[in-house]
């Protein structure tokens, strides 16, 4: 899937995450800002990259603003944002 436009998903409520996806060149870059970054920062980035890879995203910028979301929530928000950024799906 190609990321064609800026898109977002989620909220900044506690236990949710707000995810922004932007078009870019040169691979997938992930930026994580999280209230639990020290405890789960690496796990969050790994999940985000997994979702992007599963959707065959070659290039995009993904920004995570996490308020303590569970892994399943983060994955769902990232997938939704990527699909919205894909335009026609």
């Amino acid at each position: 899937m190609n990321v064609r436009t800026l898109a977002s998903a989620g909220t900044l409520e506690s236990s949710d995450a707000y995810v922004e996806v932007l078009p870019s060149d040169g691979g997938v870059t992930v930026e994580v800002e999280s209230i639990v970054k020290r405890q789960f920062g690496a796990a969050i980035e790994a999940s985000v990259r997994e979702v992007a890879a599963a959707l065959d995203v070659a290039s995009c910028e993904i920004r995570i603003h996490d308020r303590g979301a569970l892994d399943c929530v983060i994955r769902a928000r990232v997938e939704t944002a990527i699909r919205r950024a894909g335009g026609d799906e």
């Binding site: 405890q39 789960f40 920062g41 690496a42 796990a43 569970l70 892994d71």
Partner: peptide
């Protein structure tokens, strides 16, 4: 199993 295992604080 729900949250994952947190990294310990330094």
């Amino acid at each position: 199993r729900i949250t994952g295992k947190p990294e310990p604080l330094c």
